[in-house]
């Protein structure tokens, strides 16, 4: 079984990498892009017995830094 975890910066937390990517997109000649924020995708292959609660604990204890990041758990 596969679960995808999306880790993103909280609203209001400055994202220097997103800003740099935004500049690079504009440098390629694309216009009309308002903002870019970069995050992280983590794919976890696991037994069906690994619960949503376990996955949430993995996120809060390690995969996301709750001071600056949020996470979303997407199960197939």
């Amino acid at each position: 079984m596969k679960t995808r975890i999306f880790v993103t910066l909280k609203n209001g937390v400055l994202d220097p990498q997103g800003k740099a990517i935004h500049h690079a997109i504009e440098g390629l000649g694309f216009s009309g892009v308002h903002d870019v924020r970069a995050g992280r995708l983590i794919e976890i292959e696991h037994e069906p017995g690994v619960s949503k609660a376990d996955l949430e604990t993995m996120c809060t204890k390690l995969l996301a830094n709750m001071v600056i990041e949020n996470f979303e758990i997407e199960q197939a």
């Binding site: 990498q17 740099a20 001071v67």
Partner: peptide, 16 residues
Amino acid sequence: TEAGLLPGALMRNAGI
């Protein structure tokens, strides 16, 4: 900070 002994977090430098 990651271990929770100090508050806050250290992010990528603002100037990259």
